[in-house]
Computed example of a mutant assay.
Amino acid sequence: MSTQLPVLVGIDGSRDGLIALTWAASYAMLHDAPLHAVHVVDDDRHVAVGAPPNARDDGSEVLEDALDELELIGFRAASLEVRHGQPAQVLLEQSEHSQALVVGRRGMGGFAELVLGSTSQVCTALSTTVPLVVVPDTWDPAAPPRGRIVVGIDGSVEGQDALQFAFEQAATTGAEILGLHAVEIPKSYPDPNVWDDPDQEPWRDTADELLTRTLEGWTAKYPDIAVHRRSVTDHAVLALARESRDADLVVVGGLGRTAFSELRMGSVARGLLYHSHSPVAVVHHPEF
């Protein structure tokens, strides 16, 4: 029996919840970890919409659907639980005793607010010290793996935690790594006609140097993983979303919990949750 911390997944009775459950089970199998699926009954929500007490969700149908899905994929190292409370808050509390938190991008309301709701909910939900993986409904569990993990690189301390997660996942799956650095060129930037070398973008050397410096320690630690580097002139969200079409996973850093920011999650991670075609892992930097 595995002694590892479980992989935590939020289920809510929606198709997205089942897709997230399947991804989480696959991740748990790869890491020889148990799976813990939680359905949170938000009693306040039922009261707000005026549902009579006998018509309120007791979670039994959601758990039955989840059990059927796990049986279908042959995964048995799972525990399932119904809790009552605010979904994001309950998941955060549970994640403190987990190695990763997995949710679907959209759902029937149970977890939609976790990633696509108000700013305050997103900030609260993503102030977690474990990786958060958001699985879009475009992810097809039956499709063969692409064998590629894309990781956003900006040279920050937070980005090192994302790189660690990406390389560990690549080592487990045999995937290659694409380190992507996006540079936004301001409109005020000089016209190419006045560059010293019209054929050489002046920011390219700096971007390539950042990629090399950031990745060199990880390539030395994981010499068997194929690593590719790419710098592009584009908004980071658009560049990462484009690469997600041909990736098994996109990994980005979150902001540290001590960061003074309206959105602890960071604008790139937040935007990517809406636009990525593959699952997105948001990896937070712990408190200093």
Rank of each mutant, 00 (worst) to 15 (best):
S127H: 11
V135Q: 09
G110S: 07
Q99M: 14
G159L: 05
A88M: 03
L80C: 09
V102T: 08
V115T: 15
P144A: 12
Q164R: 14
C123A: 14
I73K: 06
D154A: 08
F165M: 00
D137C: 11
S156W: 03
M108I: 00
R56I: 00
Q99F: 04
R83E: 11
H84G: 03
V135N: 09
A78Y: 04
L70W: 02
V115G: 15
S60M: 08
T119W: 06
V135I: 15
A143G: 13
I153K: 10
T124D: 12
V134T: 13
A142S: 10
H97I: 00
D58I: 11
V62N: 03
P141D: 11
I149R: 09
R56V: 08
E168A: 08
I73F: 01
A100V: 11
E81W: 03
V130D: 00
V157R: 14
A166L: 00
V62K: 03
P87N: 03
H97D: 02
S98M: 00
D65V: 10
L132N: 06
P144E: 13
I149L: 08
G117P: 04
L132P: 06
P144V: 10
E71G: 15
E168F: 01
G110R: 06
G74Q: 01
S127C: 12
V103S: 02
Q86P: 04
A171H: 05
G152Q: 11
V133T: 11
E81R: 03
D58S: 12
E158V: 04
G74N: 04
S127A: 14
E64V: 15
G152W: 10
Q169W: 07
V122I: 15
A143S: 15
V115P: 09
Q164V: 14
Q94P: 06
D65Q: 12
R148P: 11
G110Q: 06
A100Q: 01
P131V: 00
D140M: 06
S120A: 15
F167Q: 02
A55K: 09
D65A: 07
P131F: 04
L163T: 02
R105P: 01
P145G: 14
Q89T: 12
G155W: 03
